[in-house]
Structures are given as structure tokens and as C-alpha cells.
Amino acid sequence: MPEQSLTQTYPTRWKRPPVLLTNPLWRRVIAVGALVYLVLAIQTVEVDWQRVYLGLERGWRFVQGFLVPDFTTRWNDIYYGLIESLTMTLTSTVAGVLISIPIGIGAARNLAPAPVYLACRSIITLSRSFQEIIIAILLVAMFGFGPFAGFLTLTFASIGFLSKLLAEEIEDCDHSQIEAIRATGASWWQVVNYAVQPQVMPRLVGLSLYRMDINFRESAVIGIVGAGGIGATLNTAIDRYEYDSAGAILIIIIAIVLVVEYSSSYIRRWFQ
């Protein structure tokens, strides 16, 4: 087979056909649109380069603070902030799980009657629509500064998260098992207890631990708007340009997140 004859008998050009947008007009419109948007968006970013230049020195100090953190100078503040964060995390996760179980069951289409289903679904939507920070602002305004408002914020946010995932898990349950228990003449409570609970229990444990991880990370933030926890300490440290204390706090947060992640994978195995 001489090469020459191949190029004469077969096409020598090939272009990869477009994968996503097959219409060439749309492709062009979207490409140009994206480019125009990018230019416009970047233009809105006004950068004061002199300020950034000054900031570099501070940034370097922060990196140094992170590498050589100072745990001792502000240890009292860090300690109290940490205790608040940790207690807030635990209590709000427990409260969140306790409230989420009935709401999650109520929001499962295969278990709940229509009015209950709608009510529970609206609670979930309400809880999921707003950022934790916004809820914290409102709750601090109502309940005053401190970890109690933080506890309520995290509980409220946990409810939306846990109920939604729990309801989905219940809806995915093996239907034949539910039918089998129902066929024995079991009451609604017995159906939940014997057919649904064993199926969703491991998942519920996993989700709760995951939410605990999230709650801890959030507890470090809501302090910025006055809801207690390590966030308030961090905020103060940064305001005072004490980057070595700030670095210490960030390292503690990262370490605790790591510990929670590892121990939760351990506990999950224990429950399965």
C-alpha cells in the first residue's frame, strides 16, 4: 500500500466534531459572550496596586506568622474561643439531628401524608436558602451576642441539611422491605422502626458526623458577626495585626478538622 494512493483515495482532513454545542452560531455567540463578560468583569476590579504592594509586606508577615505561630500570648482568648466553638458544634449537631429525624421522616414522600410532606419540605427550603452568616446576624439581633445565638444558627442550618438528605435516603429505601413489614399488619410506627430505621441508620450516622465537621468549620466564622466561638478571637487577632496568633488559630482549626475527619471515618466503620 503506497502512501501516495492512500492520500488520493481517502480524505486527508479531519476536524473533531464539537461535543457540546453543535450549532455553530450558538457556539460563536457563547464564546463572544464569555469573552465580553470576562473583559467587563475584570474591568470592575479596581486594584490599588500601591496598596497591594504595601500589603505584600503584611502578607509576608502573615506567612511567617503561619510558619512560626504564637500559641502562648493570646492563649486565654484562644482557649475560651475554642471551648465555645467545640461546645457549640456538639450541642448544635445533637439538637440538629434530634429535630431533623421527625422532619426528615415527614419530608419522605413514601412515609408522610401530603400536608405533612409539604410542611416539612418548606421548613427544609427555608433553612437551606440562607447563608449561616445571615441567620447568625438575625439571631444575634434577637438573642444577644454569644454562643447561644451561634448554637441556634448552627442548629437551624443543620436541620435543613440533615432533613433533606435523610428524606432522600428514606425515599431511596428498598420498598419491598417496607411492604413486607406493612403486610404483617404493623402500625406506622412499627414500619418506621422495623423497615426504615435499619436501612437508613448507618447513613444517618455518617451524615451527622459530616455535619459536625461542617458545624465546626462554620462555628469559626459566625463569631465574626458576634455569635461566639473561635471566629471572634480570630477576628480580633487579625484586626490587631497579630498574625502569629491568627496563624496559631488557623493551624488549630485545620488540625481539628483533620481529627474530626479521621475519627468520623473510624466511627462510621464501627456503625456499619
Binding site: T44, V45, E46, V47, D48, R51, V52, G55, R58, G59, F62, I133, R217, E218, A220, V221, I224, G231, L234, N235, I238, D239, Y241, A246, L250, I253, I254, V257, L258
Partner: peptide
Amino acid sequence: RSINSLIWALLLVAIIGPGLL
């Protein structure tokens, strides 16, 4: 992943000044 974007923002505002950047 451990550090919320609000905390990153807090730091960055202190370092490079307030604004979109």
C-alpha cells in the same frame, strides 16, 4: 477546605486592602 471563605476574606482585606480583589 478547612478555612471558610469569609476568614480568607478577613485576612486578605487586612493584607491587600478592602475591595473586589
